[in-house]
Protein backbone atom coordinates (compact mmCIF):
# COMPACT_ATOMS: atom_id res chain seq x y z
CA UNK A 1 0.00 0.00 0.00
CA UNK A 2 2.73 2.39 1.01
CA UNK A 3 4.67 1.58 -2.12
CA UNK A 4 1.63 2.17 -4.29
CA UNK A 5 0.96 5.61 -2.82
CA UNK A 6 4.50 6.76 -3.49
CA UNK A 7 4.24 5.63 -7.12
CA UNK A 8 0.97 7.51 -7.36
CA UNK A 9 2.57 10.74 -6.15
CA UNK A 10 5.27 10.30 -8.75
CA UNK A 11 2.68 9.71 -11.42
CA UNK A 12 0.69 12.74 -10.33
CA UNK A 13 3.75 14.92 -10.61
CA UNK A 14 4.30 13.56 -14.09
CA UNK A 15 0.77 14.55 -15.05
CA UNK A 16 1.31 18.06 -13.74
CA UNK A 17 4.73 18.42 -15.30
CA UNK A 18 3.74 19.68 -18.79
CA UNK A 19 1.52 22.38 -17.29
CA UNK A 20 4.22 23.38 -14.83
CA UNK A 21 6.78 23.52 -17.63
CA UNK A 22 4.67 25.80 -19.81
CA UNK A 23 3.80 28.03 -16.87
CA UNK A 24 7.43 28.18 -15.80
CA UNK A 25 8.66 29.05 -19.26
CA UNK A 26 6.01 31.53 -20.35
CA UNK A 27 4.77 33.07 -17.10
CA UNK A 28 7.01 32.40 -14.10
CA UNK A 29 10.31 33.07 -15.85
CA UNK A 30 9.10 36.30 -17.48
CA UNK A 31 7.74 37.37 -14.10
CA UNK A 32 11.08 36.70 -12.42
CA UNK A 33 12.86 38.46 -15.24
CA UNK A 34 10.60 41.45 -14.54
CA UNK A 35 11.78 41.42 -10.94
CA UNK A 36 15.37 41.49 -12.16
CA UNK A 37 14.53 44.23 -14.66
CA UNK A 38 13.05 46.35 -11.86
CA UNK A 39 16.54 46.76 -10.41
CA UNK A 40 17.99 47.99 -13.71
CA UNK A 41 17.56 51.05 -15.87
CA UNK A 42 16.62 48.97 -18.92
CA UNK A 43 14.82 50.96 -21.58
CA UNK A 44 13.42 50.35 -25.03
CA UNK A 45 15.47 53.19 -26.43
CA UNK A 46 18.36 55.41 -25.41
CA UNK A 47 21.87 54.73 -24.09
CA UNK A 48 20.60 52.38 -21.38
CA UNK A 49 18.94 50.20 -24.03
CA UNK A 50 22.40 49.26 -25.24
CA UNK A 51 24.13 49.07 -21.85
CA UNK A 52 21.57 48.55 -19.13
CA UNK A 53 23.05 48.68 -15.65
CA UNK A 54 21.91 47.76 -12.17
CA UNK A 55 20.59 50.78 -10.31
CA UNK A 56 19.69 49.13 -7.01
CA UNK A 57 16.50 50.45 -5.50
CA UNK A 58 16.42 53.66 -7.51
CA UNK A 59 13.26 52.69 -9.43
CA UNK A 60 11.52 51.83 -6.17
CA UNK A 61 12.60 55.02 -4.44
CA UNK A 62 11.31 57.02 -7.36
CA UNK A 63 8.06 55.11 -7.34
CA UNK A 64 7.20 56.02 -3.77
CA UNK A 65 7.51 59.69 -4.56
CA UNK A 66 5.64 59.40 -7.84
CA UNK A 67 2.20 60.96 -7.53
CA UNK A 68 1.10 59.29 -10.76
CA UNK A 69 1.84 55.87 -9.33
CA UNK A 70 -0.27 56.55 -6.25
CA UNK A 71 -2.96 57.92 -8.48
CA UNK A 72 -2.88 54.70 -10.53
CA UNK A 73 -3.20 52.61 -7.37
CA UNK A 74 -6.12 54.71 -6.18
CA UNK A 75 -7.87 54.52 -9.56
CA UNK A 76 -7.39 50.75 -9.61
CA UNK A 77 -8.77 50.38 -6.10
CA UNK A 78 -11.89 52.39 -6.92
CA UNK A 79 -12.24 50.50 -10.20
CA UNK A 80 -12.02 47.06 -8.57
CA UNK A 81 -14.35 47.94 -5.72
CA UNK A 82 -16.79 49.77 -7.97
CA UNK A 83 -17.00 47.31 -10.83
CA UNK A 84 -16.04 43.87 -9.51
CA UNK A 85 -17.04 43.99 -5.85
CA UNK A 86 -20.15 46.13 -6.18
CA UNK A 87 -21.35 46.53 -9.78
CA UNK A 88 -20.90 43.05 -11.21
CA UNK A 89 -21.77 41.37 -7.94
CA UNK A 90 -25.02 43.22 -7.31
CA UNK A 91 -26.29 42.99 -10.87
CA UNK A 92 -25.03 39.41 -11.25
CA UNK A 93 -26.76 38.36 -8.02
CA UNK A 94 -29.95 40.15 -9.01
CA UNK A 95 -30.02 38.39 -12.38
CA UNK A 96 -29.15 35.04 -10.84
CA UNK A 97 -31.97 35.40 -8.28
CA UNK A 98 -34.47 36.59 -10.88
CA UNK A 99 -33.56 33.74 -13.20
CA UNK A 100 -34.29 31.10 -10.58
CA UNK A 101 -37.99 31.89 -11.01
CA UNK A 102 -39.93 30.11 -13.68
CA UNK A 103 -40.68 33.10 -15.84
CA UNK A 104 -41.09 33.46 -19.55
CA UNK A 105 -38.23 34.49 -21.87
CA UNK A 106 -35.78 33.16 -19.31
CA UNK A 107 -33.28 31.95 -21.89
CA UNK A 108 -33.63 35.12 -23.93
CA UNK A 109 -32.76 37.20 -20.87
CA UNK A 110 -29.77 35.06 -20.02
CA UNK A 111 -28.50 35.28 -23.61
CA UNK A 112 -28.69 39.06 -23.46
CA UNK A 113 -26.80 39.13 -20.19
CA UNK A 114 -24.13 36.76 -21.51
CA UNK A 115 -23.45 38.72 -24.70
CA UNK A 116 -21.20 41.44 -23.22
CA UNK A 117 -18.94 38.79 -21.74
CA UNK A 118 -18.53 37.17 -25.14
CA UNK A 119 -17.53 40.44 -26.81
CA UNK A 120 -13.76 40.59 -27.25
CA UNK A 121 -12.11 43.50 -25.43
CA UNK A 122 -11.39 45.53 -28.54
CA UNK A 123 -14.94 45.18 -29.85
CA UNK A 124 -16.36 46.09 -26.46
CA UNK A 125 -14.06 49.13 -26.44
CA UNK A 126 -15.37 50.30 -29.83
CA UNK A 127 -18.97 49.86 -28.82
CA UNK A 128 -18.49 52.01 -25.76
CA UNK A 129 -16.65 54.67 -27.71
CA UNK A 130 -19.82 55.00 -29.74
CA UNK A 131 -21.90 54.98 -26.54
CA UNK A 132 -19.90 57.65 -24.73
CA UNK A 133 -17.66 59.69 -27.03
CA UNK A 134 -18.73 62.17 -29.67
CA UNK A 135 -20.62 64.76 -27.65
CA UNK A 136 -24.35 64.97 -28.31
CA UNK A 137 -24.18 62.17 -30.88
CA UNK A 138 -23.07 59.56 -28.36
CA UNK A 139 -25.80 57.01 -27.74
CA UNK A 140 -25.91 57.65 -24.00
CA UNK A 141 -26.17 61.40 -24.59
CA UNK A 142 -29.16 60.84 -26.84
CA UNK A 143 -30.79 58.61 -24.26
CA UNK A 144 -30.52 61.22 -21.52
CA UNK A 145 -31.56 63.98 -23.93
CA UNK A 146 -34.73 61.99 -24.53
CA UNK A 147 -35.43 62.54 -20.84
CA UNK A 148 -34.71 66.23 -21.19
CA UNK A 149 -31.30 66.22 -19.51
CA UNK A 150 -28.35 68.06 -21.03
CA UNK A 151 -25.67 65.43 -21.53
CA UNK A 152 -22.15 66.09 -20.28
CA UNK A 153 -19.09 64.86 -22.16
CA UNK A 154 -19.13 61.50 -20.39
CA UNK A 155 -15.50 60.49 -20.69
CA UNK A 156 -14.28 63.95 -19.74
CA UNK A 157 -16.56 64.72 -16.83
CA UNK A 158 -17.12 61.29 -15.24
CA UNK A 159 -14.23 59.21 -16.61
CA UNK A 160 -13.80 56.92 -13.61
CA UNK A 161 -17.54 56.33 -13.27
CA UNK A 162 -17.76 55.49 -16.94
CA UNK A 163 -15.04 52.83 -16.91
CA UNK A 164 -16.64 51.32 -13.80
CA UNK A 165 -19.94 51.11 -15.67
CA UNK A 166 -18.27 49.63 -18.73
CA UNK A 167 -16.46 46.97 -16.75
CA UNK A 168 -19.58 46.18 -14.76
CA UNK A 169 -21.42 45.71 -18.05
CA UNK A 170 -18.76 43.30 -19.22
CA UNK A 171 -18.66 41.13 -16.11
CA UNK A 172 -22.30 40.67 -15.05
CA UNK A 173 -22.37 37.30 -16.82
CA UNK A 174 -19.41 35.82 -14.94
CA UNK A 175 -20.95 36.83 -11.64
CA UNK A 176 -24.32 35.50 -12.74
CA UNK A 177 -22.95 32.10 -13.76
CA UNK A 178 -20.95 31.60 -10.59
CA UNK A 179 -23.69 32.86 -8.33
CA UNK A 180 -26.38 30.81 -10.12
CA UNK A 181 -24.22 27.80 -9.49
CA UNK A 182 -24.06 28.78 -5.83
CA UNK A 183 -27.80 29.33 -5.66
CA UNK A 184 -28.59 25.96 -7.16
CA UNK A 185 -26.65 24.22 -4.39
CA UNK A 186 -29.14 25.51 -1.81
CA UNK A 187 -31.52 22.66 -1.02
CA UNK A 188 -35.03 23.47 -2.22
CA UNK A 189 -36.64 21.80 0.83
CA UNK A 190 -34.96 24.26 3.19
CA UNK A 191 -36.39 27.18 1.25
CA UNK A 192 -39.81 25.52 1.03
CA UNK A 193 -39.79 24.85 4.76
CA UNK A 194 -38.98 28.48 5.48
CA UNK A 195 -41.75 29.59 3.17
CA UNK A 196 -44.29 27.33 4.89
CA UNK A 197 -43.18 28.74 8.22
CA UNK A 198 -44.26 32.10 6.85
CA UNK A 199 -40.85 33.69 6.35
CA UNK A 200 -40.88 36.69 4.04
CA UNK A 201 -38.78 36.57 0.90
CA UNK A 202 -36.32 39.13 2.19
CA UNK A 203 -35.92 37.17 5.43
CA UNK A 204 -35.33 33.99 3.46
CA UNK A 205 -32.72 35.78 1.43
CA UNK A 206 -30.92 37.21 4.47
CA UNK A 207 -31.16 34.24 6.81
CA UNK A 208 -30.86 31.31 4.41
CA UNK A 209 -29.76 32.14 0.90
CA UNK A 210 -26.98 34.55 1.77
CA UNK A 211 -25.27 32.48 4.50
CA UNK A 212 -25.44 29.32 2.41
CA UNK A 213 -23.96 31.13 -0.55
CA UNK A 214 -21.15 32.73 1.38
CA UNK A 215 -18.42 30.33 0.17
CA UNK A 216 -19.42 30.96 -3.44
CA UNK A 217 -19.45 34.69 -2.88
CA UNK A 218 -16.02 34.61 -1.28
CA UNK A 219 -14.58 32.62 -4.16
CA UNK A 220 -16.24 34.92 -6.68
CA UNK A 221 -14.88 38.04 -4.96
CA UNK A 222 -11.33 36.69 -4.99
CA UNK A 223 -11.41 35.63 -8.64
CA UNK A 224 -13.12 38.76 -9.90
CA UNK A 225 -10.95 41.14 -7.88
CA UNK A 226 -7.80 39.47 -9.12
CA UNK A 227 -8.86 39.43 -12.76
CA UNK A 228 -10.14 43.01 -12.59
CA UNK A 229 -6.73 44.29 -11.49
CA UNK A 230 -5.36 42.93 -14.78
CA UNK A 231 -8.03 44.50 -17.04
CA UNK A 232 -6.22 46.35 -19.79
CA UNK A 233 -7.47 46.19 -23.38
CA UNK A 234 -11.02 47.31 -22.67
CA UNK A 235 -10.08 50.52 -20.89
CA UNK A 236 -7.02 51.17 -23.04
CA UNK A 237 -9.13 51.15 -26.21
CA UNK A 238 -11.60 53.50 -24.56
CA UNK A 239 -9.50 56.12 -22.76
CA UNK A 240 -5.80 55.18 -22.89
CA UNK A 241 -5.74 56.19 -19.23
CA UNK A 242 -6.89 59.77 -19.73
CA UNK A 243 -8.07 62.40 -19.34
CA UNK A 244 -5.10 63.46 -17.27
CA UNK A 245 -4.63 60.05 -15.66
CA UNK A 246 -8.21 59.87 -14.38
CA UNK A 247 -8.62 56.31 -15.69
CA UNK A 248 -4.99 55.24 -15.54
CA UNK A 249 -5.29 51.78 -13.99
CA UNK A 250 -2.02 50.22 -12.88
CA UNK A 251 -2.10 47.93 -15.91
CA UNK A 252 -2.29 50.99 -18.15
CA UNK A 253 0.29 52.84 -16.06
CA UNK A 254 2.71 49.94 -16.51
CA UNK A 255 2.06 49.92 -20.24
CA UNK A 256 2.53 53.67 -20.49
CA UNK A 257 5.76 53.59 -18.51
CA UNK A 258 7.19 50.63 -20.42
CA UNK A 259 5.96 51.28 -23.92
CA UNK A 260 5.21 54.95 -24.35
CA UNK A 261 7.85 56.36 -22.01
CA UNK A 262 10.04 53.31 -22.89
CA UNK A 263 11.27 52.89 -19.29
CA UNK A 264 11.19 49.11 -18.93
CA UNK A 265 13.00 49.05 -15.59
CA UNK A 266 10.60 51.46 -13.99
CA UNK A 267 7.58 49.72 -15.51
CA UNK A 268 8.86 46.43 -14.08
CA UNK A 269 9.21 47.99 -10.62
CA UNK A 270 5.56 49.03 -10.76
CA UNK A 271 4.58 45.48 -11.77
CA UNK A 272 6.48 44.04 -8.83
CA UNK A 273 4.77 46.35 -6.36
CA UNK A 274 1.37 45.52 -7.82
CA UNK A 275 2.12 41.82 -7.56
CA UNK A 276 3.21 42.22 -3.92
CA UNK A 277 0.13 44.23 -3.00
CA UNK A 278 -2.27 41.78 -4.58
CA UNK A 279 -0.48 38.84 -2.99
CA UNK A 280 -0.82 40.50 0.38
CA UNK A 281 -4.52 41.12 -0.22
CA UNK A 282 -4.96 37.57 -1.49
CA UNK A 283 -3.28 36.02 1.52
CA UNK A 284 -5.05 38.25 4.02
CA UNK A 285 -8.30 37.46 2.31
CA UNK A 286 -7.77 33.73 2.39
CA UNK A 287 -6.71 33.86 6.06
CA UNK A 288 -9.67 36.01 7.04
CA UNK A 289 -12.26 33.98 5.22
CA UNK A 290 -10.54 30.69 6.02
CA UNK A 291 -11.34 29.42 2.55
CA UNK A 292 -10.41 25.81 2.00
CA UNK A 293 -9.14 24.55 -1.30
Amino acid sequence: MKHRRRTAAWQLNLLLFPSALILALFIIYPALYSVYMSFTNEALVGPSARNPSLVGFRNYLRLFGDAEFWNALYVTLVFVVGSAIIGQFVLGLASALALTRRIRFRSLFSVFILLPNAAPEVVAGFMWISMLAGGDNATLSRIVMFFGITPPDWLQVFPLWMIIIVNTWRGIATAMILLSAGLSTIPQDVLEAARIDGARPFQIFRRITLPLMLPTIVLYMLISAVSTIAVFGLIYTLTRGGPGGATELVSIYIYNQSFTAFQLGYGAAVSVIVLLISMAIGIAYVRMMAVKV
Binding site: S34, V226, I229, A230, I254, Y255, L275, S278, G282
Partner: peptide, 13 residues
Protein backbone atom coordinates in the same frame (compact mmCIF):
# COMPACT_ATOMS: atom_id res chain seq x y z
CA UNK B 1 -2.25 35.60 -8.18
CA UNK B 2 0.12 35.69 -11.09
CA UNK B 3 -2.94 36.56 -13.12
CA UNK B 4 -2.90 40.03 -11.62
CA UNK B 5 0.34 40.70 -13.46
CA UNK B 6 -0.95 42.61 -16.44
CA UNK B 7 0.14 40.87 -19.64
CA UNK B 8 1.81 44.14 -20.51
CA UNK B 9 4.35 43.47 -17.76
CA UNK B 10 5.28 40.09 -19.24
CA UNK B 11 5.58 41.05 -22.87
CA UNK B 12 9.21 42.14 -22.95
CA UNK B 13 10.76 39.11 -21.21
Amino acid sequence: LIRVLPPTALVVP
